[in-house]
């Protein structure tokens, strides 16, 4: 496969996406799993589908539509979380379904044949362009910077939000920032594994890393490495067997997690 990597631009692009998505997933996946925000992330991811549909309908880049929809849903969920007037899981479920329904409706309104949405739902890492790599590089840089610059604020907020709030830390800013980063992360993963499969790439590496490292920093570093391994292994297998890359990456991640869970008996060494 190495020969092919040097020969084909699309494989070089896929490797770049694999590397950058490992960075963003490694950081955000650990934070999302530790803060138990996986279902919320799923909700944000699925609203992105509405944005993809709108993008096709009004003739803008579908990924820009996904970015707008997922960021807007992150802000709405954050607002509802803070008012505590409505159960947030109800709102997440509704936005989840609404995003999918809007995506179908928008593409249905297009004249002629509806576009193929499969690459957005299940990803196609082999079809990425230079602009996709650039977008992911910027998102990865933003995520890494926000984490490193405010790492002690994150620790205080993630361990005990109430104490952080009364200490004077602006937990509202941290919460909205986290949710918007989740939205950015989801958009970043759409090309690699798609809207439906991205939850696995956010959870499996982070959960696997938690089996081996007791520190936040250790889990993040290990999670980045594992995501990279899953991406490369999945990509290689999909190349040789001619199967969908997104699904292969996700299956490798899930299978590895369950093997590690079995081997370690679910306990961090």
């Amino acid at each position: 496969m190495l020969d092919a990597v040097f020969k084909y631009q699309f494989l070089q692009n896929a490797l770049a996406i694999g590397l950058l998505s490992a960075l963003i997933c490694g950081i955000m996946g650990v934070i999302i799993t530790e803060k138990k925000l996986l279902m919320l992330s799923g909700g944000i991811a699925h609203t992105a589908y509405g944005g993809v549909g709108l993008g096709y309908l009004i003739g803008i880049q579908p990924i820009i539509g996904a970015l707008i929809f997922s960021t807007a849903s992150a802000v709405v969920i954050g607002k509802i979380n803070r008012t505590k007037r409505v159960q947030s899981d109800v709102v997440i479920a509704l936005l989840w379904s609404a995003g999918m329904a809007l995506g179908i409706t928008f593409t249905g309104l297009m004249p002629g044949y509806p576009p193929d949405m499969n690459s957005y739902l299940f990803g196609n890492i082999l079809s990425v362009s230079h602009s996709d790599i650039l977008v992911l590089a910027v998102l990865s840089f933003i995520t890494l910077s926000v984490y490193i610059i405010f790492q002690n604020d994150w620790k205080a907020y993630l361990f005990d939000t109430a104490f952080a709030e009364i200490s004077g830390i602006n937990t509202a800013v941290l919460e909205y920032t986290l949710l918007i980063l989740v939205a950015l992360c989801v958009v970043a993963l759409i090309k690699a594994v798609g809207i439906i499969l991205c939850l696995a790439l956010l959870s499996a590496p982070a959960a696997s890393a938690a089996l081996f490292s007791k520190t936040l920093k250790g889990r993040i570093i290990l999670s980045v490495i594992l995501t990279l391994i899953f991406n490369l292994t999945g990509l290689t297998l999909s190349y040789y067997f001619g199967i969908a890359s997104g699904a292969t990456i996700v299956l490798v991640a899930i299978l590895t997690y369950f093997i590690l869970l079995f081997v370690t008996k679910g306990k961090c060494k």
């Binding site: 405010f150 361990f159 200490s167 004077g168 520190t215 889990r219």
Partner: peptide
Amino acid sequence: FPITVLEVVETAFLKSQLNP
């Protein structure tokens, strides 16, 4: 959450709205 006892107590010294 993966945090040590000492780190937990240290968070008490964060007194600004954000502490970059």
